[in-house]
Amino acid sequence: MELFSFVDDIKRMDKRQAIYQILNFGMIISTALMIWKGLMVVTSSESPIVVVLSGSMEPAFYRGDLLMLTNYREEPIRAGDIVVFRIEGRDIPIVHRVLKVHERDDGYVKFLTKGDNNQVDDRGLYAPGQLWLEKKDVIGRARGFLPYIGMVTIVMNDHPQLKYLVLAVLGFFVLVHREN
């Protein structure tokens, strides 16, 4: 019966307590949002943490690994860097390694990428007629690596019902749980 002790908790909750719990819930959400936005400012990348979704960079990165990105403007793009870029007409960003760089005197850079596990370069993946990537396509460069953690988001995205279930249960317990 201890499993359902929260039912008693709700019954015993007065108005003040309820408001406190809701504010607490809002606090948690805004903290998470602020951390994410803060990371965006610190790394100047629109997406400072990405999850590897494909095996095209194996054996370095596997599905579910976590990458930390930076995108500082003064940091040049060089051959060998691992860049995360977006292709026109594709929603999902790609994580691949820079194979060729040509930088003009006026600072304009064009570069070509390739996945470590792919046999050929990425020209087949780019938009039709696109031969090179430019600075504007880049979301960030991989600076840090953490294995497996991203598996959580992959599982959640593959099974959306699970995502809503977990969110509902977490939200419910945050609202209901009473600090003693």
Partner: peptide, 9 residues
């Protein structure tokens, strides 16, 4: 002459 840097792997 046109490019200040070229890198080819």
């Amino acid at each position: 002459p046109t490019n200040s840097l070229n890198q080819v792997v």
